[in-house]
Design a protein around this nucleic acid. Structure first.
Lengths: 351, 351
DNA sequence: AGTAGAAATGTGACCGGTCACAATGGCGCT
DNA sequence: AGCGCCATTGTGACCGGTCACATTTCTACT
């Protein structure tokens, strides 16, 4: 086994004939360092290949240069078990890294249980071990006040994904209501006036907001709001299949369906095929979420693409700023995108 | 801002009236601690809510309790940009956590550039900062000897995903050849004898091994090996579309196609539709990889599911063992799974 | 020139663990 | 009782940075 530690700050200090503290000041862009000295130190750092050791930094220092990203264990497990596609963590990693790299931060990912009490215990353990500068909570943990309380108590900055209350935290989200409006307008622009909405759960703030957007858009376009065209789904495939079947079997059927998540959109897709209709000729279909599957199924589905990477990137930015002493709390709304694919292509023949 | 550090080892020591070292021994399951003392210390740890600080542990100690997982930046970016589904990191996280949690380890994910030189510089920086106990290299970095040399030189254990040479590293992989055989047998069992193989690149060891398996299975079943039914793909959609079109347009067409990756399988799917054939009635289709898309497209595709989670889990196990001084080097082959879906359903009417 | 005050640099302690080694305790044996 | 030996426990140094504060050097102004 070779040397466990290479060049230290003392080696650099010795090399330039300065004290450790001066080198430390250069590293941290501290004030009161003569420019010529700063250059000399930087040159030596480069030449010797010195890289500060994160563990040592966080010992006496106040920063750990770590951002902890929390995901839900059960959801992750379930996605894995069901073989259901999910690139959530991929997106988090991508978004987080773009920001963390700039400031020399690193991302640690951890899974914790859905159960609020267990979650709290587990989070306590992890933050005690790692002492990260910031923690990113993703749904459903962004809604667990035990966790935010714990973090507040421990003096660790916290970012919540999917919430928009702000207050003392860094909240990142997207404009769910606007997305609901956008998809509705998208369909209206393509000639649809008979648009049904397959809703998720009223327990989810996001669902409610999206539905609001749908209603707003309908009224903006002077279209009738039909209660029987609000499907009560639960984000699951089976329930959605039943709803879709009822809508599509009759003569008074909608010409477009908006599904609150991808699982339900797939349910519609399969139902359409069973009933003998075609997408997009007989029915336009649009989904939120834009998980991997919707992009590759036949036909590819138009969907709202959640700005996961952007949200996480912003969360990291806020947390890093917070650990530098700035007040980074507030709400950040990342812009979503409507990805147009075949399922709402204009081949639809209304009239 | 509240207390930055809670209970320390000294607090526990004071509580039980023992020295720090004794508490440390209990923590690390060290020898020579009287059982009664061990119990008393454990009780105090529990009661006071003491959690050892990882940074402090790695300072004087030899372990950092960190596993670093390296993924390719360009590939990750490209997947993100193209909106292509990819739950690779999700699977890594899931697999890694199941093992890391058992031993109090944490996973840090990092992206590095494809370019070998840049990759080396970036890896050097990260391992200098974090000093992880082990590093997991995923393709294409598992093949970059600069990285493995660097890790060897720095005395950091290394696991390579997708290699099977073993030697001084922890190599984790799956039986690619066996998978090639398996899919072929699967098709033969369903009555197919006209099976084409849409290959990836001969530069990829995995491609070669899978193709070997296909040939072996054909000969086991007494079926003819037709050179014109080996498609030269390059893992890309477009090239594969051309090959598929040539096969399917003529009368002498195969009744089943094996695609070396999912992108190519999708190309076949779309080509089949264009040509006016149906899956699985006219053509059976099967893919390796099993990325999210294949599970949800219409019809859902039968595919080999890569045991990513299992491989990463094993990699972590090996790295953790190595950091405990054990010799964990060697090759571990994770069992793959054939996930049967509609694209090879028996509705196929041969005869 | 003398001196105040800011700018630049240095010093020792310290963070919270683990290491190497020293010291103590308990037991069996002669 | 005296001894050896192993099991158990304790002590001081140390890892590589940063903190608080002390010291020196420079600049400006009376």
């Amino acid at each position: 086994m070779a040397s466990k530690q290479g060049v230290t700050i003392r080696d650099v200090a010795r090399d330039v004939g300065m004290s450790r503290q001066t080198v430390s000041r250069v590293l941290n862009n501290g004030p009161n360092v003569k420019p010529s000295v700063r250059d000399k130190v930087n040159e030596a750092i480069e030449r010797l290949g010195y890289v500060p050791n994160i563990s040592a930094r966080r010992m006496r220092g106040s920063r750990s240069y770590l951002i902890l990203a929390i995901n839900d264990r059960q959801r992750t497990f379930e996605n894995w078990r069901a073989g259901r596609g999910n690139d959530w963590v991929d997106q988090m990693l991508f978004g987080g890294m773009t920001e963390c790299e700039k400031h020399g931060y690193h991302m640690v990912f951890e899974l914790i249980d859905t159960d609020p009490t267990k979650a709290q215990e587990q989070l306590f353990k992890v933050i005690s071990e790692l002492r990260p500068d910031g923690v990113i909570l993703t749904p459903p943990h962004s809604d667990n006040s035990r966790l935010t309380d714990l973090l507040k108590d421990q003096g660790i900055a916290c970012a919540r994904v999917g919430r928009r209350e702000g207050g003392e935290f860094v909240d990142v989200c997207m404009d769910e209501c606007g997305a609901g409006q956008r998809v509705t307008h998208h369909l209206v622009e393509r000639g649809h006036s008979r648009i049904a909405y397959l809703a998720g759960s009223p327990d989810y703030g996001t669902s409610v907001m999206r539905l609001d957007g749908y209603r707003a858009a309908l009224s903006e376009c002077g279209l009738e709001f039909r209660k029987d065209w609000i499907g009560k789904g639960d984000f699951q495939f089976d329930t959605a299949s039943v709803v879709a079947h009822n809508w599509l079997y009759g003569a008074d059927r909608p010409t477009a369906i908006i599904a609150d998540n991808d699982q339900m959109a797939f349910a519609v897709l399969h139902t359409v095929e069973r009933v003998g209709l075609r997408i997009p000729e007989d029915l336009a279909l649009i989904s939120f979420e834009d998980t991997p599957g919707v992009r590759l199924c036949v036909p590819p589905m138009t969907a709202i693409r959640q700005p996961t990477a952007a949200m996480i990137s912003r969360a990291c930015e806020g947390l890093i700023a917070a650990s530098s002493g700035e007040d980074a709390s507030g709400v950040f709304e990342a812009p979503f995108e409507l990805i147009e694919r075949t399922s709402t292509a204009p081949s639809f023949s209304h009239s």
